[in-house]
Amino acid sequence: MLDAPTAPLRLALVAEDPLARGALSRALSDQGGELLMVASGTQAELESAPGDAPDVVLWDTGLRLPENDSRVEVPDLGAPVLALVADEAAGEVALTAGARGLLFRDVGPAPLVAALLAVARGLTVFDTALAEVRAAPRASSTATATPGPDSLTPREREVLALLAEGLSNKAIADRLSISEHTAKFHVNAVLAKLGVQRRTEAVVRAARMGLVTL
Rank of each mutant, 00 (worst) to 15 (best):
T142H: 12
L112M: 05
L65E: 03
L116V: 08
G108D: 06
A79N: 13
E73A: 13
P111H: 06
G122I: 09
E34N: 09
E34T: 10
G33Y: 09
V93Q: 07
V81W: 02
V107M: 00
L58T: 03
D106E: 03
L103W: 01
L58I: 06
L102I: 04
G78Q: 11
A115D: 03
R100V: 03
D76P: 00
V72C: 01
V125E: 04
P54V: 14
R105T: 02
A131W: 05
P137L: 09
R64V: 05
R134S: 10
T142N: 09
P54D: 12
A143H: 09
A90R: 00
A53W: 06
L46A: 10
A136Q: 11
G101N: 02
A110R: 13
V74D: 02
E158D: 15
E67C: 04
P154H: 14
L36C: 13
A110G: 02
A90S: 15
A89E: 07
E34R: 14
N68P: 01
L112S: 00
L103M: 06
V57E: 07
E92K: 06
A139K: 11
D87W: 00
T124K: 06
D150H: 13
E88I: 05
G33E: 15
L35G: 08
A39P: 13
E73H: 12
S70A: 14
V119T: 05
G62T: 01
P54F: 13
L112G: 01
L103S: 02
A114V: 05
L116E: 05
S48W: 13
M37I: 09
E88H: 03
D69R: 08
A53P: 09
P75M: 07
E73R: 15
D127H: 07
V56W: 10
L152K: 07
V81A: 09
A49Q: 15
G148C: 08
E158F: 13
E92D: 10
G108P: 01
G101W: 05
T128C: 04
A89M: 07
R157G: 15
A39K: 12
V119N: 02
S151W: 15
L35E: 06
T42K: 02
A110C: 01
V93K: 02
P149V: 11
R157N: 15
R64Q: 12
A83G: 06
R100L: 12
A110I: 10
E88Q: 11
T124R: 13
D87N: 05
G51A: 15
G148P: 05
E158T: 11
G148W: 07
A94Q: 00
A97R: 02
V74S: 06
L36R: 14
T146I: 15
G98R: 07
L46M: 13
T61H: 01
P147R: 10
T142G: 10
A110Y: 04
A49E: 15
A44F: 09
A145N: 01
R121S: 14
L58Y: 04
S151C: 14
G122V: 10
R100I: 03
L152Q: 07
V113M: 08
T153Q: 11
V85I: 09
G148N: 09
A139D: 05
L63Q: 01
A90F: 00
F126S: 04
E45D: 14
G51Q: 15
F104W: 03
R100A: 11
